[in-house]
Design a protein around this nucleic acid. Structure first.
Length: 788
RNA sequence: GCGCCAGUGGCGGAAUGGUAGACGCGCUGGUCUUAGGAACCAGUGGGCAACCGUGGGGGUUCGAGUCCCUCCUGGCGCACCA
């Protein structure tokens, strides 16, 4: 049975044209896929389109077209661009998330999630663009304004669909440890996002009432230092003790504050009893308390928390030290010994935490508690161009999620996007339905799903894109996880976390045997290019820049131009290189090799004309080399080729693709320096197979010309015995500093070689009149002579 | 502020604790020319030299670019998360 190897690059959004970033991404994946195919693996290497989303709607309005037409024509164009790159992709697995074929199955998954209690509806605060009458994603809000309308974004309470990702917070966190082939950086980002903290929940009794206020704290040990309580403006207790007018006034003040770090608070009527001491402490509404974290309420211990300290100073609240420190160290947030805390005095932080929780538990007003920063995933979008959520609403306000046999809910084609808000809202023809179960009139859900839902399971659908169900359980168990997942670091949290959640949720629903979707993650770096600007701050395209006497000018106008640092390619800075042009001018192989040559694939790659040119020169050089007549081998030729195969393979497997390029240069430098021409020999065939993953076109044409064949045998097995070098250059150090080298054979006799070494001029000079104290011989590696 | 990563020639970058600078670009000189974004040859960390060199300072080690401590600089991420 061949090894299954699922190699996947993050599928693109069909924006219109592929860019160099795509090219780099897909070339890296393609090299892997081709290598593994040569190894005889059963490679899965699909490609598809992340085809729903906002840009299509905006483009439709701007260009008077339809999101679907725009998207499908972009897909067509981008597919032909990708095909121009001749990537080794399984096009028969292709899918586009905007096709009924895909999203109808997603609606089925939605129903499953709903039935499993993992999808639900609740009121939530969202970013509302008052001009477009629609919700904006967080990333579409720039400096508090809508990116398209420039209007001040409002916070609005809307009924929204959510996925219960918090159910999996603990597992999503713990399983990060299993992902040993993920970049540490991404795992840390996810860990921080999940934001687990251990602490305690403490009930504070509201004075003179029989009610309690819950707070979460990671520092229950500082309870004796609590001098106030602060709650968020949205805390239920605020509604009870303040009028709507007062609340609105406070909200306004909070919003208007310039520096969002400045503390602001209003004391409210109620106060709480201190749980450990016979005293009352005041309750404030404070702008720095988050209503989305913990209980939306805290106790303030000014002596040992920077925020509480700042707040207490501003409102002249008492500051009681409960951890031993100097007064000028306040607020003191480190570990120390407890003071002023009757039952905790003398304990350190951890012991005090244990003891106070034990006590609070006993008294029945507290417990240990684990809190997570991660919140449930809001998936509702008030947008037309997305997957319709399969639900209907009755006139009484109740709703029903559809049954699977009522699917699909198709997205209607005839819509008016010029109107305000979600086009589906105004489409009564589509919206109004009679519920087949109750015969009652109902309205369709007009929200569509966040497009991150689409990309959370596409790697499952690729396994069988024609199945009449979302996926086949056996196929998932056999073919997942994806072995190598390659894409940009910008998806470190959202997409990768959502996909992990989906995998686990669907595992539980469908009894799958897979816990994680992506076994290995590789994040490629972006492509940068120098930027050019005129004195008038106009960006100039690199190809319009000419050099005269060391100065740079814009070709057309002969204005002086300044060269700026290499930055991420962007249309606004005009430093974009179009893949189509490069492919036309330099060809596929030169483009491929440049994508991997100048820096490690996970780092930035600076686009340079010299770089792409020298890549092309290398191709020509290899062609020229193989056009030479065959010559006899040198003694070490076989060894050099074997080392090449070995190094190249190691470097492909490590994603050290820049070193693969160095390996190719090293090999041909040797062959040409030694004037060993291999022509149509066996060794040639070996070399030509090995360069195939990186330079497929060249490799195929050499195979045709030299061997009149269009097929390769498998990737050669390295003969370990040929990798051993018995002749070595042994370095000799004196007192740990390099002195000289000596030619010898592996397995030399230490005493014999030392005799020779002592006679070498470079050594003799240095050790005469000195005493050799010690000789360190690391056999076959180095000799270090220690002298007095 | 917190966290993470990184600092090596003119540049991009190589170096299981063992000859620092592989490989490429650029540059210098030369060769050949159907005068080209071509190819080939030689050279290219600094210094006349002894020697000195991997951001600075300490340490561990026979031996440190690599390990430890500390500081500096840059990049990325998070940012009142109680």
């Amino acid at each position: 049975m061949p090894n299954k190897n699922y190699i996947l690059e993050m599928f693109p959004y069909p924006s219109g044209n592929i860019h160099m970033g795509h090219v780099r991404n897909y070339v890296i994946g393609d090299i892997c896929a081709r290598y593994h195919k040569l190894k005889g693996d059963e490679v899965i290497h699909p490609m598809g389109w992340d085809a729903f989303g906002l840009p299509a709607e905006n483009a439709a309005i701007q260009f008077k077209t339809h999101p679907q037409d725009w998207t499908l024509s972009n897909i067509k164009n981008m597919k032909s661009q990708l095909q121009k790159l001749e990537l080794d992709l399984d096009w028969d697995r292709e899918l586009a998330t905007c096709n009924e074929d895909y999203y109808r199955h997603q609606q089925e998954l939605f129903i499953d999630l709903y039935k499993a209690g993992l999808a639900y509806k609740k009121d939530a605060v969202v970013n509302w663009d008052p001009v477009d009458q629609t919700v904006l994603a967080n990333e579409q809000v720039i400096d508090g304004k809508g990116w398209r309308t420039g209007a001040q974004v409002e916070k609005k309470n809307l009924s929204q669909w959510f996925f219960k990702i918090t159910n999996y917070a603990e597992e999503l966190l713990n399983d990060l440890d299993k992902l040993d082939l993920w970049p540490e950086k991404v795992k840390i980002m996810q860990k921080n996002w999940i934001g687990k903290s251990l602490g305690a929940e403490i009930k504070f009794k509201i004075s003179n009432q029989n009610e309690f206020l819950n707070i979460f704290t990671t520092r229950p040990d500082t309870i004796y230092g609590a001098t106030f309580i602060a709650v968020s403006i949205n805390h239920p207790i605020v509604k009870k003790s303040l009028s709507k007018l007062e609340i609105d006034k406070i909200k306004k003040d909070f919003n208007e504050i310039d520096d969002d770090k400045e503390k602001l608070g209003y004391k409210i009527k109620i106060s709480c009893d201190h749980p450990m001491l016979d005293k009352k402490i005041p309750v404030y509404v404070a702008n720095f308390v988050l209503d989305t974290y913990g209980e939306g309420a805290i106790f303030g211990c000014p002596a040992h928390d920077e925020r509480d300290y700042e707040f207490a100073k501003k409102y002249s609240l008492p500051i009681i030290k409960v951890i031993d420190c100097d007064d000028d160290q306040l607020p003191f947030t480190e570990d120390g010994f407890l003071v002023n805390s009757p039952i905790l005095d003398g304990l350190n932080k951890n012991d005090a935490i244990k003891k106070i929780i034990f006590h609070l538990k006993k008294v029945g007003i507290g417990n240990e508690k684990t809190n997570y920063k991660i919140r449930d995933w809001g998936v509702s979008r008030q947008r037309y161009w997305g997957c319709p959520i399969p639900a209907i609403y009755y006139e009484d306000g109740s709703f029903r999620v559809l049954e699977k046999n009522e699917l699909p809910v198709l997205l209607p084609y005839d819509v008016n996007l010029e109107g305000k808000g979600n086009a589906l809202l105004n489409l009564d023809k589509w919206r109004k339905v009679i519920c087949p179960l109750t015969n009652k009139p109902a309205l369709r859900e007009t929200d569509t799903l966040d497009t991150f839902v689409d990309s959370s399971w596409y790697y499952m659908r690729f396994l069988n894109n024609k199945l009449d169900r979302p996926f086949d359980v056996n196929q998932i168990n056999e073919s997942l996880p994806v072995d190598k997942y390659i894409g940009g670091i910008e998806h470190a949290i959202l997409h990768l976390l959502y996909s992990r959640f989906f995998m686990k949720a669907l595992r539980d629903i469908y009894k799958l045997k897979v816990d994680e979707p992506f076994k290995q993650l590789f994040t490629q770096g972006m492509i940068t290019h120098k930027t050019y600007k005129t004195k008038k701050n106009e960006w100039v395209m690199p190809k319009d820049v000419i050099s005269r006497d060391g100065d740079l000018y814009r070709e057309k106008s002969f204005e002086r131009v300044e060269e700026g640092p290499a930055e991420k390619m962007s249309k606004s800075k005009k430093n974009v290189i179009e893949p189509d042009e490069i492919l036309d001018n330099y060809g596929i192989d030169a483009t491929r090799i440049f994508m991997i040559s100048d820096s490690p694939p996970d780092r930035e790659l600076e686009w340079t004309d010299e770089g792409i040119q020298s890549s092309k020169n290398l191709i020509h050089r290899i062609e020229r080399y193989f056009s030479q007549k065959i010559t006899p081998l040198k003694n070490d030729t076989e060894k050099k080729v074997e080392k090449f195969v070995n190094d190249l393979e190691k470097n492909i497997l490590n994603f050290s693709l820049n070193k693969c390029v160095a390996d190719i240069y090293t090999l041909f430098n040797y062959l040409e320096r030694e004037k060993v021409y291999l022509s149509d020999s066996k060794l040639s065939h070996k070399i030509i197979i090995c360069i195939f993953p990186i330079l497929p076109k060249l490799s195929l044409s050499l195979n045709k010309n030299l061997f009149n064949s269009s097929k390769f045998s498998k990737w050669p097995t390295v003969r370990a015995e040929l990798l051993i070098e018995d002749q070595i250059n042994l370095p000799v150090q004196i007192n740990g500093r390099f002195a000289t080298t000596i030619q010898t054979k592996k397995g030399y006799d230490k005493d014999v070689i030392l005799d020779t070494i002592y006679k070498l001029d470079k050594i003799k000079n240095k050790i005469t009149e000195k005493k050799v104290i010690k000789v360190i011989n690391v056999q076959d590696k180095i000799i270090n002579i220690i002298i007095s």
